[in-house]
Amino acid sequence: MIRIPCPFCGTRDHSEFTYGGDGTIEYPALDAPKEDWHDAVFLRDNVCGMQLETWHHVHGCRMWLLVERDTLTHEIHSVRPAHPGLAAMFETDQEAGE
């Protein structure tokens, strides 16, 4: 069982979450050419090792998270909200806390 430290809920079993996918994909603008969309939708680095990926805490706070996880060992390096605004708030909180 992978245990994911959700920034909102605390550490929880991965069975509470669903795996999203590669977190480094930058989706193009809606009106971008289909070649750009093809690359974003169909092509993957498929990293063996530490990768940035999305998870959805679907049976918890329902937040999308960006997780740095080693795909070979399943070790988790970091977790932050996928929403950049929320992620920034967490960083500010942490700085304030220190």
Partner: peptide
């Protein structure tokens, strides 16, 4: 629902 959340939070 998951799709809506994903779009709003990540894209």
């Amino acid at each position: 629902m998951v799709r809506f959340e994903e779009l709003l939070q990540t894209r």
